[in-house]
Amino acid sequence: MQDAPTQILRTQHLPARIAAQFARQIQQGALKPGDRLPTENAMSRSFGVSRTVIREAIAQLRNEGMIETRQGVGAFVIDRPTRHIRLDDRADSDGHAFRDLFQLRVPLEIEAAGLAAAGHGPEHLRQMDAALARMRVTDDSAHDGILADLEFHRIIAAATGNDYFVQFLGAVSDRILQTIVRSRERIRLEEIVAIVEREHTAVRDAIAARDPVRARAAMRAHMAGSAERIALRVEFYL
């Protein structure tokens, strides 16, 4: 029986802290492969946070490869390699931290796009298309587009066939999520959705065409645009 969740301080980055609690329970064996996490409503009440916060925490755990979500059923702990990566989540979300993030993320994402172009399967394309459809939403459920953006990059990492890409990108998924949220705060929703859809579609189409060079170039352009949207100047050497 896993420990009861504890209330989360409002000064903390809520999704990351909630994800960290469940990650510890999974790592320590309190939650085992096949176990179902509590419902969003139950977690929202237990932690004293909104369901939006819970969804972001679940998205982070999914991107770290610790759980899978089944439509209409719930979130379940899955088997994963014994070795995995979890970063210290105390880093501030300031310009310096974002710069450090992009210095790691840029080469990883560009190489992942190239490898995905060479090795993806039909299911990866189907999942990318589903994530793109969710990203296009501009109504009251538009927040789901943020999580879909994160999911799109996780799918590319999985399409490489190399679990290290999934693990490394999963380890920084919380920071990536913060940059997506920051960009949406700076730019009108309809405008940012159109820009992001265009950039992600270019990456998807290059991967679908099995063109690693074009896929790498499209991802590089997306990384440059992502940095620019949070007023970050990043030097590219790739």
Rank of each mutant, 00 (worst) to 15 (best):
residue 129 D to E: 15
residue 148 A to E: 04
residue 166 V to R: 01
residue 154 R to A: 14
residue 107 P to I: 00
residue 7 Q to P: 04
residue 94 D to C: 09
residue 201 T to K: 03
residue 101 L to M: 07
residue 32 K to G: 06
residue 102 F to T: 09
residue 59 A to P: 01
residue 187 I to D: 09
residue 67 I to A: 00
residue 166 V to S: 03
residue 191 E to A: 10
residue 103 Q to M: 10
residue 226 S to L: 13
residue 72 G to M: 07
residue 16 A to R: 10
residue 156 I to L: 07
residue 225 G to S: 12
residue 222 H to N: 06
residue 187 I to F: 02
residue 9 L to F: 13
residue 83 R to T: 14
residue 167 Q to M: 08
residue 118 A to R: 06
residue 11 T to N: 12
residue 207 I to G: 02
residue 5 P to S: 08
residue 127 Q to A: 13
residue 22 F to Y: 13
residue 78 I to V: 03
residue 199 E to T: 14
residue 215 A to L: 02
residue 209 A to G: 12
residue 78 I to L: 00
residue 188 R to D: 15
residue 198 R to L: 15
residue 48 G to V: 04
residue 19 A to T: 12
residue 105 R to V: 06
residue 175 R to W: 02
residue 66 M to Q: 05
residue 46 S to M: 14
residue 36 R to V: 02
residue 90 R to H: 11
residue 203 V to W: 09
residue 1 M to H: 14
residue 117 A to D: 11
residue 15 P to T: 09
residue 116 A to G: 01
residue 138 T to N: 11
residue 94 D to G: 08
residue 116 A to W: 00
residue 138 T to D: 01
residue 84 H to W: 08
residue 144 D to I: 04
residue 136 R to L: 15
residue 119 G to W: 09
residue 143 H to C: 14
residue 75 A to Y: 07
residue 53 V to M: 12
residue 99 R to Q: 05
residue 176 I to M: 11
residue 213 V to D: 06
residue 155 I to Y: 03
residue 41 N to P: 08
residue 171 A to K: 13
residue 160 T to R: 00
residue 40 E to G: 10
residue 56 E to Y: 03
residue 37 L to H: 07
residue 14 L to M: 10
residue 111 E to S: 05
residue 172 V to P: 05
residue 81 P to M: 05
residue 174 D to Q: 04
residue 54 I to F: 01
residue 4 A to E: 15
residue 128 M to A: 13
residue 8 I to L: 03
residue 76 F to G: 08
residue 96 H to T: 09
residue 179 T to Y: 04
residue 122 P to N: 14
residue 40 E to D: 14
residue 21 Q to I: 01
residue 229 R to F: 12
residue 71 Q to T: 14
residue 38 P to I: 14
residue 100 D to I: 15
residue 219 M to W: 00
residue 85 I to C: 04
residue 67 I to D: 04
residue 76 F to I: 06
residue 133 A to R: 05
residue 134 R to V: 09
residue 17 R to H: 13
residue 213 V to F: 05
residue 100 D to L: 14
residue 183 S to V: 10
residue 75 A to D: 08
residue 143 H to Q: 11
residue 165 F to D: 00
residue 106 V to M: 03
residue 103 Q to H: 05
residue 101 L to E: 09
residue 211 D to G: 02
residue 135 M to I: 12
residue 214 R to G: 10
residue 36 R to I: 13
residue 30 A to M: 09
residue 24 R to N: 15
residue 212 P to A: 01
residue 98 F to L: 12
residue 21 Q to H: 07
residue 39 T to E: 10
residue 50 S to E: 06
residue 238 L to A: 12
residue 27 Q to H: 13
residue 221 A to P: 11
residue 32 K to C: 11
residue 15 P to Y: 09
residue 31 L to Q: 06
residue 32 K to A: 08
residue 51 R to Y: 15
residue 157 A to Q: 01
residue 37 L to W: 01
residue 234 V to K: 09
residue 189 L to R: 15
residue 78 I to K: 06
residue 85 I to S: 05
residue 14 L to V: 06
residue 193 V to F: 02
residue 33 P to N: 13
residue 195 I to E: 03
residue 172 V to G: 04
residue 118 A to G: 01
residue 104 L to S: 04
residue 176 I to R: 04
residue 108 L to R: 00
residue 203 V to M: 07
residue 70 R to D: 15
residue 48 G to C: 08
residue 101 L to K: 11
residue 55 R to Q: 05
residue 101 L to W: 04
residue 24 R to L: 03
